[in-house]
Amino acid sequence: MTSNETLKNYRRIVLLTDGHSTPFLAKTAISLLRYRHEDIAAVLDTELAGKHAQEVFATGEGIPIVDSIIPGADSIFIGIAPPGGKLPGNWRPVLKQALERGIDIVSGLHEFLGDDAELRTLANASGSQLIDVRRNTEKTTATAAPFRDGCLRIHTVGHDCSVGKMVVTLEVERELLRRNHDAQFLATGQTGIMIAGDGVPIDCVVADFVNGSAEAFVRRNEQHDFLLIEGQGSISHPSFSAVTLGLLHGTAPHGLIFCYESGREKVKGLDDVPLLPTKRLIEAYELAASLRQPCKVIGIAMNGRRLSATEAATERECVSAEFGLPVCDVYRDGTAPLADAVERLRTEMYG
């Protein structure tokens, strides 16, 4: 488990996206701009210096894009999640300069910066930290012992990777908190951990311990009335289905929110593999989750970024009619229909 109060305490963050400021590669930066806006001092991209984050990322109003580390920065956050999770080679001079100045570096890459001898030597000399949020020592197997009665667990699942599961989870948490509920977001990926300062980097946990680490994470937070658990991967993804199933069984959710991107037809990263129909996937998720305890899909989150407002409205109506479930695009519509569904499930279960 990654539990580092330092992550929550940074207030002058520079997001490093240099040369990689695209929606596909810089999704970590985009999410941090959205959910830690007040803590972001600048984005560093030499090619785009002089612009503002809002122009490039459609979020981060008022945050400048710069070509060097700004004075007063307390941390550099690696803002990209590239295929393979490796550090771009031409970024080393910036990281070395940061460490020489005593600035901490936070990374969610699969390649651990703390294992780099040169960077580690510089960090030790200046007293700065190299924080790899994916690094973990999880060695817990699941027990299937019951969780606290009254702790309602909602888990986001998807038809593919990178469809917005983390955003939906965070937005539902926000809405429940707005309604004065005791709700808590549980991060299971590197970006969520950077936002929340706490979590389990589930895709870097040894396979035998995925279920157990997810179960233990829930148990450490079961004092809350609502747990909103971030989903990972997809149960049908040929590459990443293992973590998806581990989360389903480890967290034992009562309800699922199914997330999908309208218009996406192929599995991400496997262009020859078609996505399965939504009906089949919902059935598979309910069956797999219910092997641990009864569970059902209670709502659908539509990622309508490819659709016009009119097209999105038509899609919502059609999908809702087909499945008899509330459907919304959290960016366009907010999350009230999904929060309503969560409240209804709690009433069904606990009165």
Rank of each mutant, 00 (worst) to 15 (best):
A144V: 11
V94L: 11
D149A: 15
L109E: 01
A313I: 09
D208S: 15
I30S: 10
L247Y: 05
L186G: 08
S262W: 12
V94R: 00
T59E: 09
G199H: 08
T188S: 08
V206E: 15
A53M: 02
E261L: 13
V157W: 03
T17M: 04
L248W: 04
F209C: 13
R220M: 11
P326S: 11
T347K: 15
L275R: 04
A142I: 13
V168S: 10
M166Y: 01
A321P: 05
T17S: 04
W91Y: 09
L15F: 11
E265F: 09
R135I: 01
Y260E: 07
T278V: 13
V200F: 08
E286D: 03
K139Y: 07
L95P: 00
C318M: 14
F209E: 07
V267H: 04
L99P: 02
G212Q: 05
I131D: 01
Q184W: 07
D203F: 12
M302L: 15
L325H: 09
A42S: 14
S75V: 07
D115Y: 13
W91M: 02
E311T: 09
R305Q: 14
N180W: 01
P23W: 07
Y285C: 10
L228D: 00
I154K: 00
R178V: 03
A284D: 04
I65R: 02
E47Y: 10
E138P: 05
D329I: 03
A336Y: 06
F240R: 09
T169H: 02
A301K: 09
L25M: 12
F147R: 10
Y331M: 15
A26K: 01
T310C: 07
N136P: 05
G255I: 01
P82M: 07
W91S: 06
Q232K: 10
L270A: 14
G231C: 12
R346W: 10
V205Y: 04
D182C: 03
P238Q: 07
L248H: 01
F57Q: 02
K51Q: 13
I298K: 12
L276H: 12
R34F: 02
L152E: 03
I154Q: 03
P83L: 11
A242Y: 13
V133G: 06
M166L: 14
R92I: 10
R178Y: 01
A313F: 06
A144P: 01
E343R: 13
S68L: 05
L287N: 11
R135F: 13
P71R: 08
E265W: 05
E175S: 12
A29K: 00
K268M: 15
A309Y: 13
G19M: 01
D116A: 03
L248D: 02
P93H: 03
R12M: 08
L281W: 02
A339P: 02
R36V: 06
G89Y: 05
V163Y: 05
I229R: 00
P337K: 07
L287S: 13
R174W: 01
L270Y: 09
V94D: 00
